[in-house]
Design a protein around this nucleic acid. Structure first.
Length: 678
DNA sequence: ATGAGCTAGCTTTTT
DNA sequence: GCTAGCTCAT
């Protein structure tokens, strides 16, 4: 009975994690130990063997990608039985769903809009202006991060406990108060609100709480080490009745403390839940023994961790390679030469990754790859839905969908230009404030009352007429959301504006809009598309073709590659100076975990490198090898010493810095580059 | 209402 | 050294 197909593929620890369904369980899942397999098998097991209804299982992840991955894997196992897994999603999407059902209890309408950082920032700036707070003294960014911190602590304005040591907090608190009120007025939520309101509703309303704590017989949580206070509270409330909560995570991969994640949730799980069963997944299915040894050795330098020993049945494989370069450019050259000479023929470029600490580090490699014609893709960077042109499109759609959406109104009313400047906007704002109406409504009234300058009046009324027309297109003519956006782009003159400026950037923008239009096809209607957009950051990366992957180590979590390059291991850069300055020893440990994440992405070969000199923020700086390099176990490392200079053996190693110029100019990539020039 | 000119800041960023 | 964001002048 229990030996169903999906159980046969599991090792004993994994199986134990799957079949122990009842009571609190903490699965300590080392890198590459098959935690997603455990989670998905567990869902299958609950439905198939325990006869649990899919909608009684709450499965939470942090990213859309992870949720999608889980869903598709479960679907593969269960086929049609997986239908009805309605509560599988990210913290934010599940909270949004819950909140839409009970919006009234939080003082919202169920059609509230979820706003992003940009909108938040604009709101804060507006508030600072009207409250006469100099935004040079306290940046909106800082204000928002403080508010976010408070929300992560579960504090509404009234509940904030000011940190007396922080001189800014007492200035920020009144802003928070106004901000929070403004959000309700506008019928919008920021990301923090989704969870904060949800917790609040569950706490304050017994009837609503009962619905969910009865319904969620089983709760599964992915990446538990990344939860913050309010998220864990939310889980604790929901698990309070059945206590069948299974959290999976790896304390060694906790790299988001700066986003409010508290490993404490993970480390103290068994203190919160009596009789917690702790299961360790220590068998690694990803990396070679050598790679694993290096990673394990490094992470063992951390004090603050549960502690585990990863094993593998895999071969020792190649030693982890450690290279020193003269400068950043040489590093890029050396690395690309290695790819050309020995990697490219044996591995798919899709299985090669360069993982960096900070995103700007990718530039050096990009330049090199462009020069020698190696294809690459950058993962991360500016998010698709954060691009200006995409936000403009969404702004139009949002305003059409919801008249009250002042933030959308502000964004697009003068874009493309309709001669609506600051003066007009000020008038609209004042009117809307005085009469408590939306900006849209206020504009109407101002035109009716003939209060505007002629030029502005023409621009504004044509804009309003278009909006009215588009709304009719949507609600009366029942035009679908894709066609609607095309009409908008056409009639508003937005497309024209982009087409008229003929440069690469605008061509890119048009491309992006095309991509947006095609992404919209996945959704049935405008409403579901807008919900998706507000909770999504990127549309699926193109995995077409063979390309080297460039990304930050943060972005690489959860991924794996045959070949991994880890350049830039220099003091100041990695571990990053700021991290040490702000968080001291704790910061250092998090950086070390980041190194651990980086190394454990590699399946076959890992290359670590640093350079003696780097052009950084406009200056050449001498750099020294990262302290992490000294922590690497010599036994599993191959130092590429080209030099005969052995004098300083004790004070670490010396690398030959005298690369001959010809060496690099004769590289395969260079030759190809020369050929292309002809 | 657009652009020149200046200043500040410069880590990561699952949602 | 680069660039985003702001101010001030046109």
């Amino acid at each position: 009975m229990i030996n169903s197909d999906y159980l046969k593929k599991l090792n004993s620890a994994q199986k134990e994690a799957v079949i122990n369904t009842d009571g609190p369980i903490l699965v300590v899942a080392g890198a590459g130990s098959g935690k997603t397999r455990v989670l998905t098998s567990k869902i299958a097991h609950l439905i198939k063997n325990k006869k649990v209804f899919p909608n009684q299982i709450l499965s939470v992840t942090f990213t859309n990608k992870a949720a999608k991955e889980m869903h598709s894997r479960v679907s593969l196992m269960l086929k049609s039985e997986a239908v009805g897994l309605t509560w599988l999603g990210t913290f934010h999407s599940i909270c949004a769903k819950l909140l839409r059902k009970h919006a009234k209890a939080a003082g919202l309408n169920s059609n509230f809009t979820i706003i992003d950082y940009d909108d938040q920032s604009r709101l804060i700036k507006n508030i600072c202006k009207s409250e006469n707070i100099d935004s040079k003294k306290i940046s909106p960014k800082f204000i928002l991060s403080t508010i976010d911190k408070w929300k992560n602590n579960g504090w509404y304005p009234k509940e904030v406990k000011i940190n007396r040591k922080d001189i800014f907090e007492k200035i920020i608190l009144p802003i928070y108060e106004v901000y929070q009120k403004k959000l309700l007025d506008l019928n919008v939520c920021d990301f923090g609100d989704l969870i904060l309101h949800s917790v609040n509703i569950l706490e304050k309303n017994k009837d609503i709480r009962e619905i969910y704590i009865n319904n969620f017989k089983y709760i599964l949580v992915d990446e538990y080490q990344d939860t913050n206070f309010i998220q864990s509270k939310w889980l604790n409330i929901l698990a309070s009745k059945h206590k069948n909560i299974c959290c999976v995570g790896d304390d060694d991969q906790s790299i988001y403390s700066w986003r409010g994640a508290e490993i404490k949730n993970f480390l103290d799980f068994d203190k919160i839940y009596e009789n917690t069963k702790i299961i360790r997944l220590e068998e690694n299915y990803r990396s070679t023994q050598n790679i694993l040894s290096v990673a394990s050795n490094l992470i063992s330098k951390n004090e603050n961790r549960v502690g585990k020993t990863l094993r593998t049945n895999s071969i020792d494989g190649e030693l982890v390679k450690l290279n020193c370069y003269r400068n950043g450019k040489d590093e890029a050259i050396g690395l690309s030469d290695e790819i050309e000479k020995s990697i490219k023929t044996r591995y798919s470029l899709n299985n090669v990754a360069i993982l960096v600490r900070a995103i700007f580090q990718t530039r050096e490699f990009e330049e090199r790859f462009l020069k020698i014609g190696l294809p690459y893709r950058i993962i991360g960077g500016t998010k698709f839905y954060e691009r200006a042109e995409i936000k403009d499109c969404i702004g139009y759609l949002r305003l059409i969908y919801q008249e009250k959406d002042d933030l959308a109104f502000e964004r697009i009313v003068n874009n493309p230009k309709r001669s609506i400047g600051d003066t007009t906007m000020k008038q609209i704002h004042e009117y809307s404030k005085k009469n408590s109406t939306s900006l849209y409504e206020a504009s109407h009234k101002l035109i009716e009352n003939n209060k505007l300058k002629p030029k502005a009046k023409i621009g504004l009324s044509s804009f309003l007429n278009f909006v009215k027309k588009w709304r009719a297109d949507l609600s009366i003519k029942k035009i679908n959301h894709i066609k609607l956006l095309q009409i908008i782009l056409d009639e508003s003159g937005y497309s024209m504006m982009l087409k008229n400026k003929k440069d690469l950037e605008n061509e890119n923008r048009l491309e992006n809009i095309k991509e947006l239009l095609s992404a919209m096809k996945e959704f049935d209607n405008l409403e579901s598309f807008l919900e998706h957009v507000s909770l999504a950051t990127s549309i699926d990366q193109d995995w077409d073709g063979q390309k080297i992957n460039l990304m930050t180590m943060h972005a690489s979590k959860g991924l794996e590659f045959d070949i991994v390059f880890l350049p830039g291991w220099e003091e100041g850069l990695f571990p990053h100076q700021k991290s040490l300055e702000e968080k001291g020893e704790k910061g250092l440990e998090e950086e070390r975990r980041l190194a651990y994440v980086g190394i454990t992405r590699a399946k076959k070969i890992a290359y670590i490198s640093f350079s003696m000199n780097r052009f950084y923020q406009g200056d050449w700086i001498d750099s020294i090898a990262s302290r992490f390099i000294e922590e690497l176990p010599e036994k599993f490392i191959e130092k590429n010493i080209v030099s005969e200079d052995n004098e300083n053996q004790d004070s670490d190693f010396e690398f030959n810095q005298d690369f001959e110029i010809e060496e690099s100019t004769r590289s395969p990539g260079w030759i190809r580059y020369q050929k292309r020039l002809k």
